[in-house]
């Protein structure tokens, strides 16, 4: 049977050996990480974005690279998923983008800071994470069972992207990822349910008509309201 001194040798020897192996792997990791993470793409804006990320403890709600807290979405692929215009508008006033829902603190970022945060998230989205986050394996199977999306033939005006409408709503079979949860309908056939005037009133201030709606009041000028309403009602022609 093992004696106490042999047990001690096992402890000290094992610890020494595996610590050495760990240090060797650490050295190798240092050598490989710059290429794997595209370290050369870390611009001053990315570095500033990271500091904003830390100084507001974003990890206290969100995960990044799957690390953090589980109260708010994983952000590694946020730029790819939502697009920069949507993120820009969201960061200006987060609670306004999800009325009557889970809240994010408004940090009152200026435009430069917003650009830095987006630059940081964009860099994160391009790091090789060994396949994380995986594409949802069951999503394709589910899609096969649902109806094919309506495809609008007309070209979509750029305002639908710049004002981030397509973040929540799909139009012409594109966009709408953020709105699935919120029940945001596709915009292709809105003309069947609403007149041009009704569309204009609605998008000017959704909560005035339906206080518990999840649709935010976007900062649209009267001209933009008209442009959107005109286009959506023209789809019926």
């Amino acid at each position: 049977m093992l004696s106490k001194s042999q047990a001690k040798v096992f402890f000290l020897g094992g610890t020494g050996l595996f610590s050495a192996a760990f240090l060797a792997l650490t050295v190798d990791t240092h050598r490989k990480v710059p290429a794997q993470t595209r370290q050369a793409d870390i611009t001053p804006a990315v570095a500033r974005g990271k500091r904003i990320w830390e100084h507001n403890n974003c990890m206290g709600c969100h995960t990044l690279f799957g690390e953090g807290a589980y109260y708010a979405p994983e952000l590694t692929k946020a730029v790819e998923r939502r697009g920069k215009p949507w993120l820009r508008m969201f960061l200006k006033d987060p609670a306004a983008m999800f009325p009557n829902d889970r809240k994010m603190v408004n940090y009152h970022f200026n435009d430069g800071q917003i650009d830095d945060v987006i630059a940081f998230l964009d860099w994160c989205g391009h790091v090789d994470l060994n396949g994380f986050p995986a594409k949802p394996p069951l999503a394709e199977k589910m899609k096969a069972t649902s109806a094919a999306p309506v495809v609008t033939m007309k070209p979509i005006p750029p305002i639908f992207d710049t004002m981030a409408c397509t973040g929540c709503h799909s139009i012409g079979g594109k966009g709408g990822a953020a709105g699935v949860a919120l029940g945001a309908p596709p915009l292709d056939e809105v003309y069947k349910r609403k007149s041009k005037a009704e569309i204009a009133t609605w998008i000017s201030d959704p909560q005035k008509i339906k206080p518990d709606t999840k649709m935010p009041k976007l900062p649209l000028s009267p001209a933009q309201v008209t442009e959107i309403a005109d286009f959506l009602s023209s789809l019926g022609n």
Partner: peptide, 18 residues
């Protein structure tokens, strides 16, 4: 220690390390 030191590796799966 035998398992725990190199077990740190389970935090290094998906953060951009080899």
């Amino acid at each position: 220690f035998l398992s725990g030191i190199l077990g740190t590796g389970h935090h290094y799966y998906y953060i951009g390390t080899p």
